[in-house]
Design a protein around this nucleic acid. Structure first.
Lengths: 154, 154
DNA sequence: AATCATGGTTTCAAATTAAAACCACGTTAG
DNA sequence: CTAACGTGGTTTTAATTTGAAACCATGATT
């Protein structure tokens, strides 16, 4: 972790989040947390990863303010791991990942889990990126701009 | 790569995409590709990663159909790496990552690059997740459902 | 003919990961 | 009381991955 950033001493707006998350396992832990898992053992069982790795990842996620530890809700002498606000902010990212997966990693008829509206049980729509005025935007309709000295590069 | 999935022989809709992308470097490569970079040397200069690693990542991305190699457009004897349709499908994911970064990794006054609407040069809106009927959905408004019997829990 | 730029591959040391063994603490069973 | 057990980890150790640097191949430049 703590990646070396030699040629630019501040990480960009994409690399910084990536560094905080840590690795793929962490993202799967976060997904499980969204699904309501809270206990060390639950994560381990769900993901099947080594306990030392899980331990390290949880510690890292807590250190980055994505998870928080709280005393167990059921009286057991252990702690539970819950998403902070910051952690919950990752929801769109997980949805994006899932939708991309649906688009390209499953045969048309292959069954897969679906994200549905809790109220109606209908599948959710695609994530939408819109301009201020409401127009839908595709990748080509956007540019990345750097703030002050305005070197606009794309 | 090619992660072992011992306890379940089919990866879920989130893990599969993660496996295909490979690692954080790959995502940064993809971001650069969205920014128009195409050449080996451009990626290397932009990201500052070792050439062997870049080489491996590019090969992996091509193998997973996220990038494609095309003969160089400028007559040089080399090839260029361009996003496939599948690769372009990752745009929302990058936007999600960037917006999360803006929310939690920059001081309110700290300058950072911004994604803007190419037409108006105004910042884009937040990614929106909506129900079929158009209601905006938060994480708590959604559930993940498994498709009938299939043994995939999530 | 020698040099340089580009796009890699190979080599090898260092860091990371993962499996398994171990440990601590509290609970239940005998 | 004591032995086994479940939970939540840490330590140990080997295997894998990473990354820096050196090397190489090809074509263009001087």
């Amino acid at each position: 972790m703590a990646k070396r950033v030699s040629h630019k001493d501040s990480m960009c707006g994409v690399a910084r989040p990536l560094d905080a998350i840590g690795d793929w396992w962490s993202l799967l832990i976060i997904r499980d947390a969204f699904d309501g898992l809270r206990r060390f053992g639950e994560f381990q069982k769900s993901l099947g990863l080594a306990k030392n790795i899980l331990s390290a990842r949880l510690r890292n996620l807590v250190a980055h303010g994505i998870l928080d530890t709280v005393p167990a809700s059921d009286g057991s002498p252990y702690q539970e791991y819950v998403l902070t606000q910051k952690g919950q902010g990752l929801f769109p990212l997980l949805v994006a990942l899932r939708q991309w997966g649906e688009d390209f990693f499953f045969a048309p008829d292959e069954p897969h889990v679906t994200l549905v509206d809790r109220a109606t049980h209908m599948p959710v729509r695609r994530l939408e990126l819109r301009a201020q005025d409401g127009r839908m935007l595709m990748a080509e309709d956007t540019v990345v701009v750097v703030p002050a000295l305005a070197g606009e590069r794309e």
